[in-house]
């Protein structure tokens, strides 16, 4: 217990700061990633073959590459191509690219949960493409993707740990564990506190997502 008090006394602020960094990275990457993912989905749904191929390749690439490998490429390999991105932005770029790929995939699946027949019915009623998308397709697609997008948010938060692999100016939670472990001997407690932050945040997001999903569920 004494150890815990000592640890919190010395590193309490550092933990809070690291948690804020983790949340900041998560929120920025998720927002940008989702926006990019939406744009990509729009391009993918258009009946233009080159776009479908290009976006398809993009999604497959960034879904299948390990995030940390992507980060290492951005931080260490891109400078050789005269593309210099600072460390923290690099982490965000890596996370945004991966998040956008998963978002594009989820949103496309969501759109395709709508039966083609409903679109035909909508057209038969004289509705235009835009009205059909706005009134029929998107409301249902968005409801369908609440769960996968919640999981994506949690996964993205856990992925911010990759920031510990490059010298970012402000440490996030996993990077903090590394640092604290070098300076003290209270490894397990440090680990436990860090774990608590991650799990706690994850549970809150999970709970919120489940509540949203329940509201969104259509009686079938």
């Amino acid at each position: 217990m004494g150890d815990l008090a000592k640890l919190l006394h010395e590193f309490g602020p550092a933990f809070i700061h690291a948690a804020l960094i983790t949340w900041k990275l998560t929120i920025i990457s998720y927002s940008l990633g989702v926006l990019l993912g939406i744009a990509l989905t729009v391009l993918r749904v258009l009946p233009i073959k080159p776009l479908k191929v290009l976006v398809g390749a993009y999604v497959e690439f960034f879904r299948n590459i390990p995030s940390v490998a992507l980060l290492i490429i951005i931080v260490f390999a891109l400078p050789d191509l005269n593309v210099l991105i600072d460390y923290e932005p690099s982490v965000i770029v890596a996370l945004v690219l991966v998040c956008s790929a998963f978002t594009a995939d989820n949103l496309r699946s969501g759109i395709n949960t709508v039966e083609a027949g409903q679109i035909e019915a909508s057209y038969s009623l004289g509705m235009s493409l835009f009205k059909t998308m706005y009134d029929i397709v998107l409301p249902q697609a968005l409801r369908a993707i609440v769960q996968p997008m919640t999981s994506l948010l949690i996964g993205l938060m856990l992925s911010t740990a990759i920031a510990s692999q490059v010298p970012v100016p402000h440490r996030e939670l996993t990077g903090l564990v590394d640092m604290i472990n070098n300076e003290t001997a209270s490894g397990i407690l440090t680990f436990a506190i860090t774990a608590a932050f991650y799990i706690g945040t994850g549970l809150v997001i999970s709970w919120a997502g489940a509540a949203l999903d329940k509201k969104a569920r259509i009686l079938r």
Binding site: E115, G117, Q118, E120, A121, S122, L125, G126, M127, K131, D135, I136, P139, Q140, R143, I218, R220
Partner: peptide, 23 residues
Amino acid sequence: FQDFNLFPHLTVAQNIELAPVRV
């Protein structure tokens, strides 16, 4: 249509009203 193709996220009344209002 054979498969009805009602819009599942709208009530019966909303299904019927949608096109008259929008179109």
